[in-house]
Nucleic acid binder design. Structure first.
Lengths: 154, 154
DNA sequence: TCAGCAAAGGTCAGATATGGTCAAAAACTA
DNA sequence: TAGTTTTTGACCATATCTGACCTTTGCTGA
């Protein structure tokens, strides 16, 4: 007795592997009609089952020509990244640990020195000035960064 | 390419790179006839996709012999970067202009494609999720990035 | 000369098309 | 039963497209 959410999840994953580019672009309204559910159900599925920690990136646009794009990350041979995303960052990460992580990624050859420095700059407390939860925001950004790192290009 | 605006944008960018002078002069009415749309659609595309923040300047002239001229801005020295910091970004910058700016920096050879892409991901609305003023925060981050880029040792 | 017309392009508000958020209700599960 | 996950729906935000009306510039013929 799988739930609707599980069916939608599975459907999307099938479409994703069918499109062997690793990228799936679809319309939220089409999907919700197909599954006879409210549109927001799609958001629920996306936010619970297609997160960076689960190996996916989701992008979208509203308005005419709008879409939802799901990118499936290739975490195959470096599940190191997956481990970091899931256990190395957590809900929050402070400036010092964030820099440490970027430096670590550089030492592992996943970022160039310059990439590490440039990204480090925009993740500094001083730059995140106005944000309520700097550590939480930094954690989110690093997770997306890590997820994106496992992609060649799309 | 699901929306007309995207098609027009792409068409213009192709013409622009074909004319390697960095300048494209075209007539609004011709364009709107070519795309079977109302003339004001062209203005919409120009104002959303060819902004100074994205490295473009648009000039025009009415009346007989009128035209629209799109200029692809050339970054010559650090003064230009400073100009972008001060006037191209402003207090706020939306996701589209932010991505456009990163792309511009890449076109100008100041960022690699990868740097542009990685930074673009962490500056997305979706990633900035909880932040109260996403556009303001993005502006701050981009300014620090540009400031770093204008330093010699990077 | 200059009024008037033709030939561009500009503005703006409203309609249309998508997607997003959030909290409450319902359905599971332990 | 308590806690968690799923489902819904009311309300929100944003992108695109369209058309009515406006402004500027150049030309022409009295």
């Amino acid at each position: 007795m799988s739930s609707l959410s599980k069916e939608i999840e599975q459907y999307l994953k099938e479409l994703l592997s069918a499109a062997n580019s690793g990228v799936l672009e679809i319309q939220r309204n089409m999907l919700s009609e197909y599954f006879h559910c409210v549109p927001s159900q799609i958001n629920y599925v996306l936010s619970t089952r297609f997160t960076p920690a689960q190996g996916y990136l989701v992008e979208s646009r509203r308005g005419g020509g709008g879409y939802v794009r799901i990118v499936s990350l290739q975490l195959d041979d470096d599940d190191d990244l997956e481990t970091i995303i899931n256990t190395g960052i957590g809900q929050k990460i402070n400036e010092r640990n964030g820099e440490g992580l970027l430096d670590y990624l550089h030492r592992q050859g996943l970022l160039t020195a310059r990439e590490s420095r440039l990204i480090g700059i925009i993740l500094k407390d001083r730059v995140l000035g106005g944000v309520e939860s700097k550590d939480g925001q930094r954690a989110d950004m690093l997770k997306y960064l890590l997820a994106a790192l496992s992609l060649e290009d799309y």
